[in-house]
Design a protein around this nucleic acid. Structure first.
Length: 516
RNA sequence: GCCAGCAUAGCUCAGUUGGCCAGAGCAGCUGAUUUGUAAUCAGCGGGUCGGGGGUUCGAAUCCCUCUGCUGGCUCCA
């Protein structure tokens, strides 16, 4: 017998080899029908996988995030089975669950999959789901797995296996119906759990996220245990469309775009401009209260300015082309960021430590060449105005200044009604130090300042390695949109960075930057 | 930039395999009605079918190209 401990601390005895589903059945039949998968000692397992030893057990249903992920992952396999039935010889990349559904990256060879094919694929999925095929977990040796996918001719899976040589002992295949996939699992017990499916989108996606490699066809979908839930989901999508800022902006005559002016260049109409003014006045007041001094800097600047700052080397090829003048060798750039200008203001005259902290703020309009496929309403544009501030202070003042910035951020977010926001600390990727400028010491100091200040302010944060900018760690505030739909982030990002390098001054202060 | 789509009246859209002067609803305008809270009646105006090029006796419809848009990928100072 084994002892199973439930989340509420209750313990019960079961025969060794009982599955989560067996255990659920012993509690109630209704519960057993809802169980999708289970957390065994914190790891998500199939509900049907035998538990051999004492364990902590949490049954997962549709109401649990991990339950949904299991469900959607199984749906990805079901879609793969349908795709393979419709397009024989199709090759498979990876097919995970996402925050809101699932996708599978496939290489359909000569076929082109478009949204016109969705109804057919959906129909096939439902047809296969009704067969109630079990998802069978099959531990396998690396060699046997390689042999299998060689035979099948799926080079993408072979590449994935190549990467997993280290963990050769843990390789598993999953089989349902006629489809066998390399997969860690877990899955729902059988395909009949999936009652409703909707393919939502098809898009290109680079294999292994590398733009120099093969582009796969990524098919997105979402699925539900009940038809009604699909309908509710579709309704929510409709509601979200009604609230789309692009639709509202046009209807309310807030802003417009013009083909003749150019893509990604918003034109603010009178009503929209009133909104802008109100927002700017509010931000101005809050900043003046906190000792910021407002400045205005030009829209273009000499190329050398950005060469000095390092931005040219990093982003020059992605920026607008330089603007040349009749004077030989002279080039200007449309201002892509305000930082160098603010540093110029600091360096304009010698400073005593008594001048610090010096807080410079500007509503600075900047221009950046964004790839054509990136443009999106007002959230990704080629010209926009940043509320951008730089704080010049001594190393000792960094933490306090950072706390003040956090306070300002919270005040603004609260005033704007953003109650649900997340804060993400973006640090260097320790694996690729060559991507970053500055000394290790400065990086450590800057990263610690962010970590300590956020901790001290009681802010809930997540930490991402490798998400830092090339010259600074960042703290990003991200807010949810009006519907709070999962995975759908408002175009509102508040970035606070802590800069420690500057070639513009003799005092070598720390520069804190806050842009939103 | 890459992949898949899309672009017809102010808005939402019809327009099957290329073939009478390109249509509907709503909005607008004019007139009638005066019935109390989302659309009463009649009439009218409005479209280089995104731009350019090509195939054809003939293109909104097929091909090429440019521009813009949508959803992803990559990028995001």
């Amino acid at each position: 017998m084994i002892t199973i401990t439930f989340p509420d601390g209750q313990e019960r005895q079961y025969e060794a080899g009982s599955s989560a589903l067996d255990i659920a059945r012993s509690i109630s039949h209704g519960l057993a029908k809802k169980v999708i998968s289970a957390k065994v000692n914190g790891e998500v397992w199939e509900a049907t996988r035998p538990i051999q030893h004492d364990a902590r057990l949490q049954l997962l249903t549709w109401d649990d995030k991990d339950g949904k992920m299991t469900f959607w992952h199984s749906s990805a396999h079901l879609m793969a089975e349908a795709l393979e039935a419709i397009y024989p010889g199709i090759k498979f990349g990876t097919g995970p669950a996402t925050e809101s559904g699932f996708y599978y990256d496939v290489d359909p060879g000569d076929h082109v999959i478009s949204s016109d094919d969705f109804p057919r694929i959906e129909q096939k999925m439902i047809e296969l789901a009704r067969l109630k095929n079990e998802y069978v977990r099959k531990p396998i040796s690396l060699e046997a797995a390689v042999a299998f996918f060689k035979e099948k001719g799926d080079e993408y899976k072979l590449e994935l296996l190549e990467k997993r040589k280290e963990e050769a002992a843990d390789i598993t295949l999953y089989e349902q119906g006629h489809f066998i996939d390399l997969c860690r699992g877990p899955h729902v017990p059988d395909t009949s759990y999936i009652k409703a499916v909707k393919l939502t989108n098809v898009a290109g996606a680079y294999w292994q996220g590398d733009e120099n490699r093969q582009q796969m066809t990524r098919v997105y979908g979402i699925s539900f245990p009940k038809q009604k839930e699909l309908e509710e989901y579709l309704h929510m999508i409709e509601e979200a469309k009604k609230r789309d800022h692009r639709k509202l902006g046009a209807e309310l005559e807030l802003f417009m775009f013009s083909e003749r002016v150019g893509a990604g260049l918003p034109i603010w109409l009178p009503k929209g401009n009133q909104l802008r003014d109100r927002l700017m006045n509010f931000l101005r007041q809050e900043q003046e209260k906190r000792g910021y001094q407002l400045v205005t800097t030009p829209h273009i600047g000499k190329k050398e300015l950005y060469v000095t700052s390092g931005h040219w080397e990093k982003y020059g090829q992605d920026s607008f082309r330089p603007i040349s003048t009749p004077r030989e060798g002279e080039e200007f750039m449309l201002k892509p960021m305000n930082c160098p200008h603010h540093c110029e203001i600091y360096g304009h005259r010698p400073h005593s430590y008594k001048d610090l902290p010096l807080r410079i703020a500007e509503f600075g309009t900047v221009y950046r060449y964004e790839q054509s496929g990136e443009l999106h309403g007002l959230s990704r544009v080629r010209g926009f105005t940043q509320d951008d501030a730089h704080i010049f202070c001594t190393p000792e003042q960094v933490k306090e200044e950072f706390l003040n910035v956090l306070d300002l951020t919270k005040v603004v977010l609260a005033k704007m009604g953003f109650e649900n926001f997340t804060a993400q600390i973006s640090l260097r990727d320790p694996e690729t130090p060559e991507k970053y400028i500055g000394t290790d010491e400065n990086w450590r100091n800057a990263e610690n300042a962010i970590i300590e200040a956020t901790k001290e302010s009681g802010l809930q944060t997540t930490t991402e390695l490798g998400e830092a900018a090339f010259y600074v760690p960042k703290l990003d505030f991200m807010v949810k949109d009006a519907l709070g739909a999962p995975g759908s982030w408002a175009p509102y990002r508040w970035t606070t960075t802590c800069l420690t390098v500057s070639s513009w001054n003799t005092l070598a202060p720390i520069t804190c930057r806050t842009a939103r």
